[in-house]
Every structure is written in C-alpha cells, then in structure tokens.
Design a binder for these strands. Structure first.
Lengths: 332, 332
DNA sequence: GGATGAAATCGAAACGTTTCGATAGGCTTC
DNA sequence: GAAGCCTATCGAAACGTTTCGATTTCATCC
C-alpha cells in the first residue's frame, strides 16, 4: 500500500542506504541528494515503517505502563508523573490493560518485548509471567506490589507510616476510642495501614476494641455496611479510621442516614485522597500517597537501568496527612 | 540476549520453519516434533519477538486510542466501550498521548503504522497529519471532532439536541428567564449546545436576553466569574444553563457565596455529567452524552473497515437528560 | 516391492529498515 | 600528473519472524 524506502530511493535515483541516511538526517549525504530524497519522499507520501525500523534497531524507544484497566480507577497523578518523565527523556509511552491476565495486551507487550521497559501497576498479572519476561536489559518496575527478582524493582508508598500518621492525628485531637474499618485481608496495603494504626494506639497506651475492628472490603458498599453494623451495636466510638476513602464515603452515608453528624458526633478519617474526598461536605480528612512522585521515580528507574546504571531494588516513599473537615478536636 | 526461534530449532534439531509451525500450533507438524520444539522453547525460555512477527505478517492485531493526555481528563466510560469491544474482537488495545503534537507518541503510532487502526480523541493533532496518515486499509475514527476525508470517519454526540433537551426541561418547569453561560467561541460543542438552547427558546416564544449571555470558557473559574458578573448586574434570571458542568461548579460556588440558594432561588443545569456532578449537594442536573456507546461504536467501525465492509462517514448519537436536584419547578 | 499419495519437514525468500565496510570520485599537495 | 585523502555513495548483510513451494518420509495398496 504505502511507499517504502525502496520506492523513495528509486524515485530519487539513489541507493536505499543513501535514502536512509538522508531521511534520518545522518550527515553523510550531500545537501543536494538529501533534498532529492526528501522531495521524493514527499511526492510519494512516504512514511517509514516503524516496525521494521524497531526490528533492525532492536529497540523501540518506548516504555509501557501496564494497568489493570484502562478505563479506571484513575491514577491520575501517578500517570502524570510517568508521562512527564518519559517525555522529558525523549521516550514514548503507551498504556495498556491487563484484562485477561496472561492473554492480555499488557502481558503480550512485555513477553514479546514490544517495548524497552515496563511499569506494572496491575495485580492480575501472575508473578511467574513477570519473572519469565524479566531479563537483564529489560527493566521492569512494579508499583504497589512486591516481587523479588534480580532484574525487577519496586516502589511503594509507606502505608504503615500513613496509618500511623492518621491515627496519631486522631489521638492528638483527643480521640481515644477509635474504630478501624479494614479492607480485604489479602491486601498488603490494608495490612500495612492496620499495622500503623495498632502501633500508634499502642504507643499511646490505647486499647483496640475488637468490636470496633470492622471489615469493609475497600468498597463503598462495604464501608456502608460496616458502619450500619457498628451503629446496631449501640456503643459508638469517637472516631473511625477507614482503611480507604471509598469505604469512608459509604460509612459517612450510613452515619448521615442515622442522623449522626460528622464531625460533631463522630470523627472520620480515610486513606488515599481520591477526588471525591475534596467534594464531600465537609471535606474528608485523609492520607495522601505521593502518586506523582511514585510514577516519576518509576520511569526514572527504568531509564537508569536502560543506561546500565545500577539501582536499588526497593524504594519507599512517604505519605502525607491531608487535613480537611471530618475530624474535630475534642477538649479534654 | 533472549533466545530466538533459530536457537529453539537448533536445540530441537529441526528446521526453523518447522519450529515456527510448531510454536504457532499450525497443524502441519507431528505431535512428536511439536513436543520436542515446545520443550526446547521452554528450556531456553524462548519468547517470540513480537516486532519481527508483526513485520513479517504486516499486521499488529492492535488498535490505538489516541488521547490528548493519558493522565486525564477521564473519559472513563468511553474508554470502557473501546476496551470491551476491542477485547471481544480479539484485538489488543493501547492508549497513548498526543502531548507534543506532531512529535508525540500518538502521531508516531499512526504515521509509522505501528497499529492496525486508530481512534482519535485529541484536538492537538493537526488535520493535516491525520490526513497524511490515513489511507485505505488503515482505519481512523475521530471522536468529538469532524474531519472530511475518504478514509476517516467520525462519531459524535448530538450536542445541539442536548442543548434543546436541557432548555426544554427548564421551560417545562416554568422557567422563562434563562441565562446561558458559554464555553470558548472556538468550540464546536459550545456552538451546538447554544444552538439547541436558542432553538428551544424560540420554539416557546421566549426571548434571549443579551445581558444573560455570559462567557465562561468551559472552566470552573470562568463559570465562577460569569456568575459574579451576573450578580453584579443585579437582575437575576430564574435559571442558568451552563454549557458544561465545570462552569456550573464554579457558578454554584459563586451563588452560594452570595447567599443565593440552588435551586430555591435559582435553578441550574449543566452539560456532560462529570463525576463531581453526582457528589454535589443537591446533585447537578445535567445532560449526559452516551460515552460508552460512542467508544463502542468507534471500535466497531474500525473492525468493519478492517474487514473490508463499508461504513458511513458520520454518526450522531443521542444525548440524555440526567435529572438531579438543581432545577426546581416553578408554579405559575 | 514398487508405485502412489498424504503427511511431515525443509530451505529460502520475504517483510522494510539500518548500518558496516567497500568503492568511486573529486580535491589537494608535492 | 601521480599519490593520497576526504566525502559521498553504494551494495549487501542483518534483525527474527512467517510462509510458500519443494522435498523427503512413510505407510498403504495392488
């Protein structure tokens, strides 16, 4: 269909190699022939076949961001970090989804080496697959997920510390009777956040009431149900720490329905700082992860490895408290 | 670095072509040699080079979604539509951004034919570039943007009708003095929405007051300022139609600050149904575009064209009114 | 046991580039 | 005017597959 470099060379009356040099702006050609070639290319509307070029060069100048779903949930600032750093380094970035697991686009791209490196933010790609695809010279960075392998590294936010921060904040504001609504037991993040919570409680000599250890599964629905249950039990805590914002959203709905005011009657704190958190009234106090920085660091590592420099295998970034309006101060 | 099919063939003691047949599961090989080959592949941890394969086959089995920015704003359901239909048809999908215009990843992918087809949802790729890349056998579908070219088609929502719907709804609820806050004059969407508005007004014999034709530039800030201006003029309308939700958000803030209640004192309607619309209190009444359907249709067209079937060049999909709480009914 | 035909295997070309090493001119320089 | 050097150009190999057509193998049947 389209014209190839051969056609261009023929029309310009030069060898294919010369045409290639001219088109790629490599100095070896005289300006006269360069113009001839570029003219011919224009006439034929020549566009180079990127695939052939990649094959020959054996590099693509592209890195991939593997997401579990292209249509969300949205790691907006993380992606921004990835995007900006890639662009600044002159690399192309593509995103693809791992829906379908081992037969997904995402897996195809790392297995078949269709890119020069990959950042994985997806939990449905088996460890095995990743380890099979990883090799020296093909950098893979995992986000929010650990994988011990010599040519894979990972960066994560400090969820433990985030849990600590949130809990300390509640305690500083005079709360002592604090409930915790967990995500799924299988989630490492949930575990870490909970660890931070217990540590803060213990540090202050506060006891964790088993009846205030609720399960919410990281969903809005789950948070709603957990709070309903808590209300049914009668004895309310002074504050609730939801292990993520979505559960907090559901929980707040349940509280409102029961006529319990936030923060006047009960304080609420979340985790993640999702977009909706800001739009709640009052705004949800929560813990922000340094998403942009995580993304930026991930690509940065890719480039370091690509350049042959060695990097650590594991990076942990700090979390940050975002104070809005759902925690009130209790005067003692 | 990695093993090639040659290595596999050598280890298995067969010809390269036989190895290829075996690995691709094409029937021509005996089960004995197939096993031999697969074994060898496993031993060497062979992964095929997808780029070489694509080159030889001269198709990639992949389509690209070109966005102006990977990190948002989020066309969540549109992307979902694209994604689901691609997957169902056994095609891979990648997303890339057109940041950087003609030197962006997005443009590189369509120019260099690194995919089999593309869906373009980006306004910073010049028409010229798209037309140069389009050719028979390389389907391109434009979203929310018109381009007349024989091998490009486009699908869009009916913004004109959306404007009509919204305005009619206000009128049905007894409003007659209605303000319109526009987006940028350059926006075709804005123009279409405004057309619908004027049509509805004229249909009902209502007059459009020039002083209530405000400019908000499609931004939250712009909406805020437009309403401030309106308030300063003294004479308030009964309802305001914001040409998009973001401006409505800003406008509502301005109203609140002035102590004007929505919808008790003034009704508000938006356009787009962005996520925040639902989280406002009361929820923002607005017009929803059929995003999922737009995405799904776009990919569908790609496949039709890829199969050699002919399709129309232009599709228009209906918009839909989303009734929430910002429009009150006025008793006459 | 030799002819027959299907099934299995092979060799080589091709996809469209890039790039290495070789060649051919055109200058200077003595 | 021959020797020597750049510089511009060329030819060919290579990247790792797939696939066509040819060749071999092997069981089958008279």
């Amino acid at each position: 269909m389209g014209a190839t470099i051969k056609d261009v060379a023929a029309l310009a009356g030069v060898a294919v190699s010369t045409a290639s040099y001219a088109l790629n702006g490599i100095g070896r050609v005289s300006t006269k022939t360069r113009d001839k070639v570029l003219d011919a290319a224009r006439q034929l509307n020549y566009q180079k076949n990127g695939i052939a070029s990649d094959l020959k060069r054996s590099r693509t100048n592209t890195i991939a961001l593997l997401l579990s779903d292209l249509s969300g949930p949205y790691y907006s600032s993380l992606i921004k970090g990835v995007q900006e750093v890639s662009l600044n380094n002159g690399y192309d970035l593509i995103a693809c989804s791992s829906i379908g697991g081992d037969s997904s686009t995402a897996v195809k791209f790392i297995k078949e080496k269709r890119v020069d490196g990959a950042i994985i933010l997806a939990h449905n790609i088996p460890d095995r697959t990743i380890m099979d695809s990883a090799r020296e010279g093909f950098p893979i960075v995992m986000l929010d997920r650990r994988l011990e392998h010599e040519s894979v590294c990972y960066v994560e936010a400090d969820h433990d510390k985030g849990g600590l921060l949130a809990t300390n904040y509640l305690i500083e504001n005079g709360h002592r009777r604090i409930a915790f609504v967990s995500g799924p037991a299988s989630s490492k993040h949930n575990k870490d956040r909970y660890n931070g919570f217990t540590r803060a409680m213990n540090d202050h000599g506060l006891t964790i009431e088993p009846r205030w250890n609720l399960i919410g599964n990281f969903t809005e629905e789950g948070g709603y149900r957990a709070v309903k249950l808590m209300i049914a039990q009668g004895d309310l805590p002074e504050a609730v720490f939801f292990a993520n914002d979505e559960m907090a959203l559901g929980g707040i709905t349940a509280l409102q329905e029961a006529g319990i005011r936030v923060p006047e009657d009960i304080s609420v704190i979340g985790f993640d700082d999702i977009v909706q958190a800001r739009f709640l009234n009052p705004g949800l106090t929560t813990v922000r992860q340094p998403d942009y920085e995580v993304g930026a660091l991930a690509v940065h590592l890719i480039f370091q490895i690509l350049k042959g420099e060695s990097v650590a295998q594991h990076y942990t970034l700090d979390t940050e408290l975002v104070i809005r309006g759902t925690v009130r101060s209790i005067q003692n």
